[in-house]
Design a protein around this nucleic acid. Sequence first.
DNA 1: CAGGGGATGGCAGCAAGCTGCCATGATGGA
DNA 2: TCCATCATGGCAGCTTGCTGCCATCCCCTG
Lengths: 213, 213
Amino acid sequence: MRGDTELVARAGHLFTGARVEFVCVARDLDTWAQPEARLAIGDRMRAAHDRSFTVRKLLSPSALADEAARAHLRMVADNGAQVRISTTRLPHETILIDKRVMILAESDGPGEREFTVTTSPALVGGVYALFEAAWESATELSAYFSGDVPQLDADSLTILRELGAGHTDETAARRLGLSLRTYRRRVAELMATLDADSRFQAGLRAGELGIAR
Amino acid sequence: MRGDTELVARAGHLFTGARVEFVCVARDLDTWAQPEARLAIGDRMRAAHDRSFTVRKLLSPSALADEAARAHLRMVADNGAQVRISTTRLPHETILIDKRVMILAESDGPGEREFTVTTSPALVGGVYALFEAAWESATELSAYFSGDVPQLDADSLTILRELGAGHTDETAARRLGLSLRTYRRRVAELMATLDADSRFQAGLRAGELGIAR
DNA sequence: CAGGGGATGGCAGCAAGCTGCCATGATGGA
DNA sequence: TCCATCATGGCAGCTTGCTGCCATCCCCTG
């Protein structure tokens, strides 16, 4: 199936027919350029408030890149959707509806995207289980927003790795070609960023947020 | 495709033809009752030592239920395979070969298992990405074996909470009605248990393992 | 009752971490 | 060019964490 138009035409009923759950795994938010699709899900989401209908979105950090995207996600979350961020490279786009239908989007080139729709129980069930595993380990969007660690620059991650490796400050500083003073300054900054009072706490936060890998 | 025999007959070449990577996600180890399949992968695994061939197994904790299973996994790991344990409910069985082929096993009833084999790049790619996300968040088998935290007594958890709260040793000791010396002894023991070289590392482990909440 | 073993805690000394202060060097704009 | 700004790093002094040693206490067993 090629192109968003064809998808909406031929699989639109799958979206509007969602009864229990709508799951979306994606690398970014480029998707849903088509107003029709947005609308169909928008309707569903409005229903999520009252009824037993769940919307879950699992995204990469890149989906938080610009302010517009963040605002959009905040809005989506306010409408009752659960949004989580995974630090690993996610599939370009995967949609799971009611544990029964799976839609995969591929976008290699600049042209129209290609979609694969399947309802095979084995396939959908298998992917759903993997999704659950990925979901469990992802962090809540709110955790990302509540001044936590939206963006931790490369330097900080390097420091984090040294700390995580269990090196002493002296060793770590030598490994990074920094003076002891600067290394410790970095650690202090990092701890301030993580809002940690002790190194233990910093490690805890880092672990919880899935950083430092 | 029904039954292990048919799988081996018709898809055996996919196993033996694996060149770069063999990924196996499963809930338990009931699989591979068929000697042929075991053998094919056994061969591959032996090759994993020298060449650039990776074997990764992602399993549920139930795969560690009995001693025989643990021994088997230890053996598998010794042969160069990477084994990780995920705490979420995994698909009954999913196999990914060289990022090109995917094999799904379904086992509803007591009868023969049903298999689905696909090479669709979109499907395999999508599932692979989800697998990566699940893999990232799973814990090393070695961590499970090396007496990590199957059992952490109430005292240790108390210590962990104090550490997590960011209290200094002196404050924490006072709060727990312990002497500074004893408190620190406890922390040292805890760190030994967690196999941590620094308090940061201990925090990291604690966070990763989901303790101290 | 005597003695062994384990947990506790005081003490001391050392190692590690933390931070204010200031000098130096690089960068960048007026 | 001069000046402001910022990141770096050396130094010093202080706090905190770490651990070996030994005394004490409690409990259990013979």
